[in-house]
Design a protein around this nucleic acid. Structure first.
Lengths: 241, 241
DNA sequence: GCGACTTTGTTCCTGCGTTCACAAGCGGCT
DNA sequence: AGCCGCTTGTGAACGCAGGAACAAAGTCGC
């Protein structure tokens, strides 16, 4: 059995494989990755699909199918070698290459993100910070000085930023987004409560606090209206599980 | 044509309707809501499904179907009355009732969230803050004093917290989650990079920075391997659109 | 007042993603 | 060395969500 030396960008095979990976599966793979690294730290070297699925909160069949997208690297009758699986998922997700991150909008949230420094689970070094506020320009946040937003296209191109994170107020988001795109950034993580308009070759992911809260609100409302039509918050409070 | 006076919790009819709303549609409805309120501020009183869909970044057929879940309140040949639509979406999402929010973990992110105060688009007043750090206890953040995490069950029950937001480090998340559940909280927004284990009647939404970045990384990798098998970042940088 | 145009609401269909279920394969035990 | 049991990987069915197309309906113009 070839060890598959995880060779720097296998190209051809991977291309076909990655094209077939459903969007939903990509998100789950990232979760598996986290669970796996966490387990490895605890000394676990082997996991069955059942165990891993339980820890990740998904069906075991779904998990096995997801893993089949990265290639069949499990051992029947035993399970998956945690270390090897991590390697292959990382490769599929393109984590073998570092992705330089720029954070725009150093308000409360931007500040928080900049201070993560290496960013969760490293591999995503923050290499540029931007804001409009004159008072902030030049001030180091998390060890990195803040640049003026006008410099976005030039700085992003120069530092080869691949991921832009937008933490600005809603009104500035589209403008900042255009600047990032002009700087060659084609992956954007948007925390501003706006739907960004971008060219087809730019990938935007939105993280929307208000929407998340409203979704929770909906489920709460539905639950309340199911058992007993909302009279008073006299619902018995269940303690513990 | 009955005006349907948006009567305080219509019950019966709404119950059946809300049960049928697909999960994906709920998220989109929240987006429509934001677009609509934004347009209303600009004085727009009527919008067609085509316009609204464009602004929300979805297909117009999908939008009309989503809106049909809240009831048919459009006018053929004209479009939707923005103000009325907002009312009905808000009602469906349960936004007519205020949802008291508790934030646990007053680190960088928790601090940022607490400072939002009323929380995006109000309706979600933050009424409790918790942390473990002794130095923080009693210190007001965003006008609200921080309580010790041990007080979570009691305080949440007392202040009728409906939504708990977890911004703690990963190791503390499950523990904090259990405390929130013990306090009667049945909706949780989790920023910690962990998959929480909760009873069936608790709804958890996860917002995972690392996962989002890794998904972007995947798309970046796929794109790179599509056109020209990664040689150097010699890709022509397209400026502007 | 009537016709034509516009836009909604809905039905049908297509495609995708998830789940079930089973055969193939591998390790461990005797 | 051979058998047994466990676990993977996958082929097929199910269900759901998204998109296209059309009929109903209401408004605007004449």
């Amino acid at each position: 059995m070839t060890v598959h030396q995880h060779g720097r960008y296998g190209a051809s095979i991977d291309d076909l494989a990655s094209r077939a990976v459903p969007d939903a599966a990509v998100g789950r793979l990232a979760v598996y990755l986290r669970v796996l690294t966490s387990m490895i730290e605890q000394g676990v070297t082997t996991m069955s699909s059942e165990e891993l699925a339980g820890a990740a909160g998904v069906n075991s069949a779904t998990l096995r199918k997801d893993l089949s997208y990265v290639g069949s690297y499990g051992t029947r009758g035993v399970g998956y070698d945690t270390a090897r699986l991590v390697e292959h998922i990382e490769h599929l997700l393109g984590l073998t290459r570092h992705h330089s991150v720029a954070v725009v909008g150093i308000g409360n949230l931007g500040h928080a993100l900049a201070n993560y420094g290496g960013f969760p689970d490293r591999g995503f070094p923050v290499t540029a910070l931007f804001d409009l506020e004159e008072d902030l320009i030049g001030v180091p946040v998390g060890g990195l000085p803040v640049d003026h937003v006008d410099g976005i296209p030039a700085v992003c191109a120069e530092r080869e930023v691949t991921i832009g994170v937008i933490c600005t107020p809603a009104v500035a988001a589209q403008w900042v987004c255009d600047l990032l795109v002009a700087g060659g950034v084609r992956c954007i993580l948007n925390f501003a409560p706006v739907v960004l308009q971008v060219p087809d070759d730019v990938e935007v992911r939105r993280v929307d606090l208000a929407v998340e809260l409203q979704i929770l609100s909906f489920y709460q409302a539905r639950r309340s209206s199911r058992r007993g039509p909302v009279t008073e918050p006299s619902d018995p409070i269940v303690v513990g599980r």
